[in-house]
Design a binder for these strands. Structure first.
Length: 227
DNA sequence: GCCAACGTTGGC
DNA sequence: GCCAACGTTGGC
């Protein structure tokens, strides 16, 4: 990979800010994962957490496709902007929420994610991308000029991570939030794959996991007429 | 542009 | 460690 060069396009507020993908940033060390196992129930709980975590295999990532100026910078970054990058690949920087960050740290190369358009005229799923590089240090946390500069993060113990994503394809049709919501309500009432979808149960989370069942159902909608 | 929901901060 | 105040998200 060439030396990293930010393509100053960007996405959602706390969500993600995209730049050209890069390999020249040190991999994030997961040095603090070993917890002392003083209490058996804690050990079991951690095992369960890990099992649940590793069961997530698909993702939904939000970004803003319409121009909006934040601290003097346009945060627009829609799926077309990802597609336009070299190798159609960018790093999903700018995530400043711990849960969203942790989900990114769980991502594995090759996994698929929905590209979700948020805070725009028509919110919804626009396409598919895949993870091409697992979590590493988000350099923008140290950049004073960056919208998502975090003065509390120290170089010897970075707080924030990002992954690289590559455009895969547009969905055959745009799948609007309103439609997903109808299914969610329907499934909540009578059962169905979207009854617990994070998009509705964890509305403000910018990086969210989907179960295979959720992912498959949402993807199947591209072959159906809108409801 | 409004504002409900909810995550974060900081005083105590 | 509680919780009120504050800030952000994101649909509408």
């Amino acid at each position: 990979m060439p030396p990293k060069k930010r393509t100053r396009s960007k996405s959602t507020r706390h969500d993600a800010q995209l730049c050209e993908g890069s390999d020249d940033v040190a991999q994030l060390k997961t040095g603090k994962r070993n917890r002392s196992a003083a209490v058996t129930s804690d050990v079991e709980k951690n095992k369960n957490d890990d099992a649940i975590k590793s069961s997530y295999s698909h993702w939904l990532m939000k970004s803003e496709p319409e121009s909006r100026i934040e601290n003097g910078v346009d945060v627009k970054f829609g799926i077309e902007d990802l597609k336009a990058l070299p190798s159609q690949t960018g790093c999903w920087d700018g995530v400043r929420n711990y849960q969203a960050r942790n989900f990114m740290r769980d991502m594995k190369v090759g996994q698929q994610a929905f590209f979700y358009h948020s805070n725009c005229k028509e919110p919804g799923i626009a396409g598919l991308m895949k993870i091409v590089k697992e979590a590493y240090v988000d350099h923008t946390q140290f950049d004073k000029k960056d919208v998502h500069y975090d003065p509390s993060s120290k170089a010897d113990n970075p707080k924030w991570s990002m992954v690289d994503v590559q455009f895969e394809r547009m969905t055959k049709r745009f799948i609007p939030l309103t439609e997903l919501k109808k299914y969610h309500l329907q499934h909540k009432a009578k059962g169905g794959p979207l009854k617990d979808m994070a998009l509705f149960t964890r509305a403000r989370l910018s990086v969210q996991p989907l179960t295979s069942e959720e992912f498959d159902f949402v993807l199947s909608l591209e072959n159906e007429d809108p409801i």
